[in-house]
Nucleic acid binder design. Structure first.
Lengths: 113, 113
DNA sequence: TACAATGCATTGGATTCTTATGTATCTTTG
DNA sequence: CAAAGATACATAAGAATCCAATGCATTGTA
C-alpha cells in the first residue's frame, strides 16, 4: 500500500531534516531511495516535491550544499547547518507529539515494538 | 503548544470522519470544540477549513445533513452514510499505518500506554 | 543499441489550509 | 440594560505544499 499523498503533506521537511541529521551528507536521489527503502516502498518522494523542499531548506539556512563530480555526473550533496540540526530536533519532537495527540484523538492502539 | 498548521494538513477529513463514526450526529461548531477538548487545546480547527471539508464530505456522499432549530438558531447536523462509515474505517487505519511508518522512519519511540 | 536507472531541475495545476470577513442569535457580566 | 463573548452558520482571497509531467544528461545493462 502506498500512502495517499495528502498524508505526506506537512511531514516532508521533517523527514528530510531527520535523514540529514542521521547522515553527514546526502544528495536528492539518495534521499528518495533511502525513504523508499526505510518505508518498504510505502513512501515514495516525488522529485517535484523534494527538490523545491531542499532548495527551500537551503534558503532558510538550514542546510548547506556542495557539488561532487562522479566522472561527468554531478551530485549535489546537502548537509545540515548548526541551525538545521536544532531545527531537525524540534521538528521531529513536534511530529512525535502530534502523532501521540492524533493517536489519542483517533483512538489508535500503539503497536508493541 | 499548538501544532504548526502544516501537520494538520491531510488529517482533517480523517478526524471529522472518525468523530462522526463515534457519534450519531454532530454539528460544525461541536466538532471544533470536541477536537479542542480531546487534544487539550493542541488542535484547533478553523471554520474556514472545517466547513468546506464538511461540504465536501456531503458532496462525496459520505455524510448526510439535517437542520435542527434551537429557538431561532439553526444547527446543521452531520451524520455518516453507509459509505461514510466504510470510508471512516479506511481512513483511520490508513493514518494508523502511516503513523507507524513515520515512527520507524523518524526513529520515534512509542509511548507506553 | 535500446532501455532502465541515476541525477539534476522546473512548470502548471490541484488541493488544502489560513486569514479575514460577514451575518445572526444567545448568554453572561458589569 | 448594554456590551462583550460565546454560539453558529458561511464564503472569499491568498499562501503553501504537493503531484504529474516534462526536460536534459550520464551510466549501466540486457
Amino acid at each position: 500500500m502506498i500512502f495517499s499523498s495528502e498524508l505526506i503533506k506537512g511531514t516532508l521537511k521533517t523527514i528530510v531534516l531527520k535523514l540529514l541529521s542521521d547522515n553527514k551528507k546526502m544528495y536528492g536521489y539518495e534521499i528518495t531511495q533511502r525513504v523508499k527503502d526505510l518505508t518498504g516502498d510505502r513512501i515514495q518522494l516525488t522529485e517535484g516535491a523534494l527538490y523545491p523542499t531542499l532548495h527551500s531548506l537551503e534558503e532558510e539556512g538550514l542546510v548547506t550544499t556542495e557539488l561532487e563530480y562522479m566522472g561527468k555526473r554531478v551530485r549535489k550533496y546537502y548537509k545540515l547547518s548548526a541551525s538545521g540540526k536544532t531545527r531537525s530536533k524540534e521538528r521531529v519532537s513536534e511530529l512525535a507529539e502530534f502523532m501521540e495527540t492524533m493517536r489519542v484523538l483517533l483512538d489508535i492502539q500503539p503497536k508493541i515494538a
